[in-house]
Amino acid sequence: MYAVISDIHGNLEALEAVLGDMPGDLERIYCLGDVIGYGASPNECCDLIREREILTISGNHDLAIADESSDISWFNPVAAAAVLWGREQLTEENRKFLLGLPRMMQSADALFVHGSIRDPDEYIMDHTTAEENLALLKSEYPGVPLCFFGHTHVKSIAPRPPHPANGSGALDLSENGPYLINPGSVGQPRDGDTFASYVTVEGLTVTYRFVQYDIERSQARIRAAGLPDMLAARLAVGR
């Protein structure tokens, strides 16, 4: 069994809660990127990822902060302000760590990307984009049944699983694959849920797990750091 997390975004309280929730028999943990950005604990989150030896790929915010030569003109003003703040905070050790991460990863039975299979910065937000990436998964990674992606901060699976989740949140993905699976965001959900989410995977059974964390403490850190207040306020509404 393994776990997949994504989009921590410097939210230490959420990351600690998720790691504390994980089953004790996990063999490994994968992270789909954006360890930092938005939240007020970039170094603490990087340190924890490194200490736990979590297998991690890079996200767009990781690279924007770690590589000071990167163009951030396409970021919205709030995101750009968080990037500039993050550049001032990030230690050299964590900068090198983030710059050394791969942009995608593959195991024996799964592919791990940040945005999409064809572009690490692409958002899979609609049926057409999902179908195009599923076609690419089938053609370029034949026999790989699962592809995990993040970036959108929204829990989703494509195509629709034939067997709906039972009370445990477990999904049987052994039929009608391959599948694209977004585990949702650890540190900044945007689907109306305020809890941190991640998935555990055993064979072709994927289970969503939902974790409450100390939102007020995370908000207080953001405000104390002088980051845009929106980044704190949105945590309470999951948007």
Rank of each mutant, 00 (worst) to 15 (best):
G20C: 09
N133L: 11
L99P: 01
P42Y: 07
T152M: 09
M22P: 10
G100V: 01
I49G: 08
P102G: 08
P102E: 07
V35L: 09
V4Y: 01
S174A: 12
I36E: 00
K96G: 05
I49E: 09
S41I: 00
L63W: 05
I29S: 04
S58Q: 06
I54D: 05
L204V: 07
A233N: 14
G192P: 09
T128V: 13
N166R: 15
V237N: 02
P189I: 09
R118N: 13
I215G: 02
S58I: 06
E68K: 12
F148K: 12
S139H: 12
S70M: 15
Y141A: 11
R234G: 02
S107N: 04
K96W: 10
L101D: 00
H151W: 08
Y2N: 07
G20I: 08
Y2I: 13
D67K: 07
G100Y: 07
M104D: 14
E131T: 10
L48S: 07
E44F: 02
G10S: 05
L90F: 02
A80H: 03
A108E: 15
A196N: 06
S197N: 01
S73W: 04
D34M: 01
L63K: 10
E122Y: 02
S168G: 13
D191H: 08
N76Q: 09
V237R: 08
H114L: 01
R95C: 10
C31S: 14
